[in-house]
Design a protein around this nucleic acid. Sequence first.
RNA 1: UGGGGCGUAGCCAAGCGGUAAGGCAGCGGGUUUUGGUCCCGCGAUGCGUAGGUUCGAAUCCUGCCGCCCCAGCCA
Length: 625
Amino acid sequence: MTAAPGAMSEPDATRVQQEPAERQDFLREIVQQDLAEGRIQQVVTRFPPEPNGYLHIGHAKSICLNFGIARQYGGQCNLRMDDTNPTKEDVEYVDSITTDVKWLIDGWADHCLGLKPVGGVARVQQVNGAEDFHLPGVMPAEAAVCPDVALEPFYASDYFEPLYRYALQLIEKGKAFVCDHTPAEVDEMRGAPDRPGQESRYRDRSVEENLDLFQRMRAGEFPDGARTLRAKIDMGAPNVWLRDPVLYRIRHASHHHTGDDWCIYPMYDFAHGLSDYIEGITHSICTLEFEVHRPLYEWILEALDLPRVHPRQREFARLNVTYTIMSKRKLLRLVQEGHVRGWDDPRMPTISGMRRRGYPAEAVRAFCDRIGVAKRENMVELGLLEHFVRDDLNRRAPRAMAVLRPLRLVLENYPEGQVEEFETVNNPEDAGAGTRKVPFSRVLYIERDDFREVPPPKYHRLSPGVEVRLRSAYLVTCTDVVKDPDTGEVVEVRATYDPATRGGDTPDGRKVKATIHWVSAAHAVDAEVRLYDTLFTVENPDDVPEGQDFTATLNPASLEVLRGCKLEPSLAEAAPGARYQFERLGYFCVDAEDSRPGALVFNRTVTLKDAWAKIEKKQGTAPRP
RNA sequence: UGGGGCGUAGCCAAGCGGUAAGGCAGCGGGUUUUGGUCCCGCGAUGCGUAGGUUCGAAUCCUGCCGCCCCAGCCA
């Protein structure tokens, strides 16, 4: 059928429709539905790490999810320290967590997504004769338009008093009791998944006695472990988390945030849901292993008869990445046992490690967005993360020439003492990046990999008799090699240049198969360059033979330090953290910790894709180790 | 063998009863003063499996198989 010219105009409106920045997933569906049905007016999420370690790429997924949903639906996301266990936590961790979260979402959120608790501490209110607590005016639209507010995390430990009062209410309702059984006894009496537990003989204490005992627990009258506060639910429940779970334990320990104010501390299940409630969280998103806790989460909120909208807990599958581990405990071991130089070692999957290595926050976010959110167990290939790092850096990183493993190249027909400057483009992907000048002279350094005395098949680079282009400079032809008389190693390559090819153009239109990078020996600046490989040699370091642990698969060659690398002179004043593409090699950034003026250290962020390496591997012609 | 989840390509992941999106990886080709980038092309007659319902099933039902999580006074 023939379409009339004017009849095609109606799709225009749909054509301009923008695809949403975030892709759809089952959690966003739930949020949308709650919004649509009016169950909530504004979405409030939270990212609740325990400050007992550094954040890693798995947390990044959760941060992107929680902050991403808040951003997408015009809501709020709170960074909350889930700090209810004083013996494991430290301010070092709250500081690093805060820094890392800010770094990850910086420039993404055009406002202060719920990082600041505007109202301060929780406030009390009378509702139906009982006390209720919430954070007044947490976020606020004002904060959203005020980019200057200090970004401060929330703390579950700021709610210890309200939490304590809720516990009292639970006791008054006859839904919690003080139990004197020892940890071993409680263990014994819990039963097993397929066998019901046994009720505590303290289960039927009077409300008065429970109140008295619990208050005395708080007053510090009992030693650690002597008593606990337990929920009175059902020792026969098939879900073991419903078998009268412990709500409070005694710990005479200083807390990083509350000091010595408390000697009883709430357990996760009690503190978490109520902290969510206090903050007005609408969607409490966590990982799959908490799915079995959900009935308890809901039981607590319902048992207390809380008047405001209850938060909803929903679960998603945690991220796993090949060649790495995600457990904080194991990462801690890597640090403590000295397998890495610290939490921010560029080989670590931590956010601080990735930052130091040069991964842009935008790339990490793009990765988190791409992997999606679902409930099935997954193991994402490291290559995907690297893809987004390259994709981002390719567009943004200025190019530079750097020779990592220098080999002298002497141009026999180039006048001794002569220096030329060539103008070269800073970033072919970004016309606005401008150009710079690179000095050229008779003695240069080229990459050892770019010369082979006997070239294998398909080798396009320099070898005797072959002509290649020196990027932005001249075409040169190899005439000879100089070898170390003892070892036979090639220590210098001799060549001639064609003066007619100035700038790299060929007036006669002839082609060369390779363009290689170079640095003028007399002008080069020296640097240390650190090359990184995966920390582990196997895709799943957790999946290791019986009797061994994950350290068995540590990669002994995960770090290679190169000294005496030769960089083009423009790099002399590279700023800490600055990222470059060293042409034909990869992306590198100035190490922000170890670089000093006059002593540059670069980290290799990621290599460029290397088609030649692939060919060579297939051919089996790769050189020495 | 109790309870809770999950099975779509090598790795992620859409799909929500109307005839298998997309990305990464891989392979082939083109452009190229980075063996980079960019561009073009190629992959499931099939959705763990066996039945059933239906005009029609990855989507609904049933059985089976497989994998993950839960018995901390950790989170």
